[in-house]
Design a protein around this nucleic acid. Sequence first.
RNA 1: GCUCCGGUAGUGUAGCCAGGUCAAUCAUUCCGGCCUUUCGAGCCGAAGACUCGGGUUCAAAUCCCGACCGGAGCACCA
Length: 504
Amino acid sequence: MGPEQWEARLREIAPELIEEISARKEPAKGLQPLEGTEGGVVMRFAPNPNGPPTLGSARGIIINSEYVKMYGGKFILRFDDTDPVNKRPMIEAYDWYIEDCRWLGAEPHEIVAASQRVEKYYEVAEALIRRGGAYVCLCEQAAFKSLKDAAMPCPHRDHTVDENMELWNKMLDGSFKEGEAVLRVKTDIKHKDPAIRDWAGFRIVTKSHPLVGDRYRVWPLLDFESAVEDHLLGVTHILRGKDLIDSERRQRYLYDHMGWVYPRVLHWGRVKIFQFGAFSTSKLRKAIEAGEYSGWDDPRLPTVRAVRRRGITAEALRKFMIDLGVGETDISISMDSIYAENRRIVDPIANRRFFVWDPVEIEIEGDVPEVAEAPLHPTIDRGTRKIRAGNRVLLCREDVVELKPGSMIRLKDLCNIEIKEVSPLRAELIDLSPETAKRLRLRIIHWAPVDGIPVRVLGPERIDTGIGEHGISDELDRIVQFERYGFVRIDSVGEEVVAYFAHR
RNA sequence: GCUCCGGUAGUGUAGCCAGGUCAAUCAUUCCGGCCUUUCGAGCCGAAGACUCGGGUUCAAAUCCCGACCGGAGCACCA
């Protein structure tokens, strides 16, 4: 029976199945559904606050919070700040995360910091020791590694519960120095994957912590802290990078020892952004400290605060991240897609303004109006703005270089002119009518008043300076479109206007 | 070396679990046209992909095996 006969036969005996087959392949919209969501979900975003949120963090914040919006429940912001040395938290970054979560439309329902809950981890550690699920290991790091790689237990693995309790208390009371003892979670020392074998749950760190100072000298490692917190917070679904894919397998041993139920887990791959390349918070931090960037919101940086300053909207970011979804493949994304989303959102709300970069003065003979009146938006009626004009205005050098005596152009919303001389640049007024320009198919270029306001545009790739129409000063903190240039956010006004470039 | 995961247009993404209407979705990008007092926006159109090889099946992007390619973990980092 061939496919056609098969279908004919099926149509005879069970036509409803044909519809079912077709219906199932409808394209999915938005995020993929989660399983086990009856009664809502509890999800967390768990960064180490060693810098501000990046676009990578934004993905975590947005997707987690979006699922909570979909199913109801709780979105938790949890600081996994348990390393005062290698990935030392920044005290300002705690607030940055809260701030950026809010801005991204992901107000956390609960905020916790691991460093303030170390006591709770101690309780679990002790319970775990009593259940025989953990032991204090006094091996040197390298010595343990070779044993582990050979699937051999270390001598401390057989300690009794009492011995372990005693050693654990000695870890806590300061009898051991840094590096002399760790608490290991007992898994399967012969596990076929070496990554799973008896992992360290606590180590001794004497350096003071930016948030809690010298309160603790025994600190949990990520796998321990995160496993315990997820349980304590009642997390139902975990979304984490696939670099943490082994965490689940490690942590399940802890859960089994304690009789807990492990949350459902989804992983995603690494994200690389073309325009920024691979970036890590620690690398950025070094570059900033070295003065290579003006700060964490330098327009060249892929941080949430930097793109916000440039006028990228939270809505665009949300839309983009949700569209991206959750996949285990490593991906390279282009800012172009984010820009496209943002343009859609910003285009209807952004006023149009003239900004002339690299300005050149032109003298126009004739009755040029002293003031031009131009619409604030080309298609939405939002009224007009007045721009000072007259017989001398400024043009962009890149437009000027194309002019020859005899060239005719239209100055947008002002007049049509014919070039008489290029150096110095001089022209004669033809008339004011847009119809003339249309009929003669004149190039339409923008311009600025000679006494306009100095503007500096800081962008991810370059800085442009020039002169803009005066009305730009009224647009503080708003997103405007500099005609024939692109969308910018007006960052400060004064003697000079500083704008941050978003995209074309 | 040991363990695990993934590979759909330039870039992302849907479809894969439950094989058939998949000549494969949507977006972005690029190209062409229309429109427009911006090189913007909008509208219309076009291009462009199931990594490869076997197997199972009437039927494979979908299931199985292998290869290749890519990624991750094997820290007293997160």
